[in-house]
Design a protein around this nucleic acid. Structure first.
Length: 383
DNA sequence: AATGCGTGGGG
DNA sequence: TCCCCAAGCAT
C-alpha cells in the first residue's frame, strides 16, 4: 500500500471521512443528472456508456448510446457485427479503436466467459479496451464493488482536496490518486460515490471556470480553505498538434461518381472512406535532378504523383475551393482540394478504391475531415 | 515513458 | 478565429 505521507498528503481521520462521504452523497442524491445509463445496472449498457464517455462529453454521447444499443442490443450482437456497421455506429465520435476493442472484448466475453459479463474487477480488466478507470467504473456501478474509478475529474477534485503537488497529466502519478480514493470511497455506495465525483468535476469543479463557492465539499477542500484553489490541479501543458498540409483529389467519372479510397487499417482513421489524399509538406517543392551534365531544378506536382499512383489521367479543373481545416489530437490539417474528371475510370488493384454516387455516400463510414470536404465541395457548387 | 489516436464545445 | 479542454487505453 502506497504511503501518502511520502507524497505530502495528510489523510483525514475516520470521522472526517464519514462526514465527507455523507456530504458528497447527500449532494448527489439531490443534484445527480438523469442520464440514460443511470437507469440500468445492466453491465453491458454500463460498459457501452463508459467506453463512449472516454474523452467524450455526455451531450455528445447520448444519441450515440441510444443508437448503439438499438443496433447491438446484446454482447452477442456486438461480437458478431460486421466491421462496416461498427464504424458507422461510431462515426463522428472519434478514437475509433474504442469500438474495435469493444468488439474484441465482446468476443472475449463469448469465448472466455460463456457469454456472461465478468463480475470481478480482475476479470473485467482482462477485456480489451478496459483499463483501470473503466474497470473501476463498471465494477462499482454495475456490481457494487468498492473500486475507485480514477479519471481526470477525480484527479482534479482530489488534487484540490489535498493540495496534491504532483502533475495529474503524468500517468505514473495516477497511483497517488488511486490510493486516496481507496481510502475515501464509500463501500456502501461505491458506484454513486464515483459518479458523484464525476458530476462534481464536470460542472462545479470543472477544469475551466470552476465555481468553488458552490461546491458541496468546499469545507473539506484544502485548496479552497487555504486560498490556493487556482494552483490545483498541477497539470503541464500538452504538446500542440503538428501542422500538416494535405492535398485531396476530388475525381469524378463520366457517370458523375466520385473516387473514394478506404484508409489502411491500423492507421489514422483506418477503415474509413475518403477522397484520395496526400501529404504535401514535402512535395510540390523543387527537386534537383541530374540531367545533361547539369543539375536542373524541377518542380514535382502533386497531380503528377496522383496520376502515377492511381493510374488515372484526369482533366484538371482548378477552382480554388476554400481550404478545409481539421484538428486531430496530434495533427492539424489544412486540406487543399483539387478537382478533376476522367473518361477512362479503370482503377488500379493495389488500393481499396471505388466509384460512388453522392447519394450513396451515407452507406460508407466517413470520418469528419471527409464530411467537411464533401460539404465544402457541395457548397462551392451551389454558391 | 512517450506517443498515437478524434471530436465538439466554450472562452 | 484560435486555443484549450474532456468520463483513457494500447503499444
Amino acid at each position: 500500500m502506497l504511503d501518502l505521507k511520502e507524497y505530502g498528503i495528510i489523510m483525514w481521520d475516520a470521522e472526517k471521512i464519514a462526514s465527507f462521504r455523507r456530504t458528497l452523497l447527500d449532494w448527489y442524491d439531490r443534484e445527480k443528472r438523469d442520464l440514460p445509463w443511470r437507469r440500468t445496472k445492466n453491465p453491458y449498457y454500463i460498459w457501452v456508456s463508459e467506453i463512449m464517455l472516454q474523452q467524450t462529453q455526455v451531450q455528445t454521447v447520448i444519441p450515440y448510446y441510444e443508437r448503439f444499443l438499438d443496433w447491438f442490443p446484446s454482447v452477442r450482437d456486438l461480437a458478431e457485427a460486421p466491421e462496416e456497421k461498427l464504424l458507422k455506429a461510431w462515426e463522428g465520435l472519434g478514437y475509433y479503436s474504442r469500438v474495435r476493442n469493444m468488439q474484441k472484448a465482446a468476443q472475449q466475453i463469448m469465448d472466455d466467459f460463456d457469454g456472461q459479463f465478468p463480475d470481478t474487477y480482475e476479470n473485467i480488466a482482462k477485456l480489451k479496451g478496459i483499463g483501470p478507470y473503466t474497470a473501476g467504473a463498471i465494477s462499482s456501478i454495475a456490481f457494487d464493488l468498492p473500486e475507485p474509478a480514477v479519471d481526470g475529474n477525480v484527479m482534479r477534485v482530489m488534487a484540490r482536496l489535498f493540495e496534491v503537488n504532483y502533475d495529474i497529466g503524468d500517468p505514473k502519478n495516477r497511483k497517488i490518486f488511486q490510493a486516496i480514493m481507496e481510502i475515501l470511497i464509500d463501500p456502501n455506495r461505491p458506484g454513486d460515490f464515483n459518479q458523484a465525483l464525476m458530476d462534481l468535476g464536470t460542472d462545479i469543479e470543472s477544469a475551466k471556470n470552476p465555481r468553488p463557492d458552490e461546491s458541496p465539499i468546499r469545507f473539506f477542500c484544502a485548496a479552497y480553505l487555504n486560498g490556493t484553489y487556482d494552483k490545483y490541479p498541477i497539470k503541464l501543458p500538452k504538446k500542440k498538434p503538428t501542422p500538416m498540409q494535405i492535398q485531396a483529389f476530388v475525381i469524378r467519372n463520366m457517370k458523375g461518381e466520385f473516387l473514394l479510397e478506404k484508409n489502411i487499417e491500423g492507421r489514422l482513421l483506418g477503415g474509413f472512406w475518403t477522397f484520395p489524399i496526400m501529404e504535401t509538406d514535402f512535395i510540390g517543392q523543387q527537386l534537383s535532378l541530374f540531367e545533361n551534365d547539369n543539375y536542373v531544378l524541377e518542380t514535382v506536382s502533386q497531380k503528377a504523383i496522383f496520376e502515377k499512383n492511381y493510374a488515372l489521367k484526369p482533366d484538371w479543373t482548378d477552382n480554388g475551393f476554400t481550404p478545409v481545416k481539421h484538428t486531430f489530437s496530434h495533427q492539424k490539417w489544412t486540406i487543399e482540394m483539387v478537382e478533376g474528371s476522367v473518361k477512362d475510370d479503370k482503377l488500379p488493384t493495389d488500393k481499396e478504391l471505388c466509384w460512388v454516387a453522392a447519394e450513396d455516400f451515407d452507406q460508407f463510414p466517413m470520418a469528419t475531415p471527409q464530411k467537411k470536404m464533401i460539404k465544402t465541395y457541395e457548397d462551392s457548387k451551389k454558391g
